[in-house]
């Protein structure tokens, strides 16, 4: 169930309150972009998906059920918008016009885009210094030593930040994952 803050946010969002629109955008544009990029090959199409998702959400916000969570509601809209754009692009392009990247990209499965949304959201919860260590390590591919040199802190500090960050991530992602023995 959405908390009182989210319920209030959704109501003000539906009314077009600028502060609420900015808050929703700041909180959810990133995860929506993640879903869109997981589905669409081109960044400009992903940006279009973010805008269309937000606009559709605003139009539908009046009928948002406050007993639900905002995040899965927005995720569902983002996923559908991204797939619609993907299908539109597929229809528009003749085979000889398809670029290599368009051919190579197949939309991620439902589970994968939801996991990507959750990973993105979890990363946003990390303190900035821990998030940066995770980014440099996983996305840039730096070793702890390289990160220490890049950030200008002792390697021990990088290791402890990395350790804390990954424990926090594991805890933040716990609700997403359930394993069977």
């Amino acid at each position: 169930m959405a908390g009182p803050d989210e319920r209030d946010l959704a109501v003000r969002f539906a009314a077009g309150d600028e502060t609420a629109v900015r808050a929703i955008y700041e909180r959810y544009a990133g995860p929506i972009l993640t879903v869109a990029m997981g589905t669409l090959a081109k960044r400009e199409l992903a940006d279009e998906a973010v805008q269309t998702t937000m606009l559709k959400a605003w139009r539908a916000a009046g009928s948002f059920d406050p007993t639900r969570e905002l995040a899965p509601w927005l995720y569902a809209i983002a996923r559908r918008v991204s797939i619609d754009i993907y299908r539109r692009e597929r229809r528009a392009a003749t085979p000889e016009e398809l670029s290599d990247e368009q051919v190579a990209v197949v939309p991620l499965s439902f589970e994968r885009t939801w996991e990507a949304w959750e990973v993105r959201t979890a990363l946003a919860e990390l303190p900035p210094d821990e998030r940066e260590v995770v980014r440099l390590s996983h996305f840039v591919g730096m070793t702890h030593g390289e990160i220490a040199e890049h950030v200008g802190v002792p390697i021990g500090t990088v290791k402890s930040r990395s350790n804390r960050a990954h424990r926090r991530l594991a805890a933040l992602l716990a609700h997403v994952v359930r394993a069977t023995e």
């Binding site: 629109v21 900015r22 955008y25 700041e26 544009a29 990133g30 929506i32 972009l33 993640t34 879903v35 990029m37 997981g38 960044r43 992903a46 940006d47 973010v50 805008q51 937000m54 606009l55 605003w58 996991e115 990507a116 990973v119 993105r120 990363l123 995770v134 980014r135 996983h138 996305f139 591919g141």
Partner: peptide, 19 residues
């Protein structure tokens, strides 16, 4: 996923104004 572009890409800085 932590190594994927999609997880780290930043939304357009003008996106909220466009919205």
């Amino acid at each position: 996923l932590l190594a994927a572009d999609a997880v780290w890409a930043e939304p357009s800085p003008t996106g909220v104004d466009d919205l």
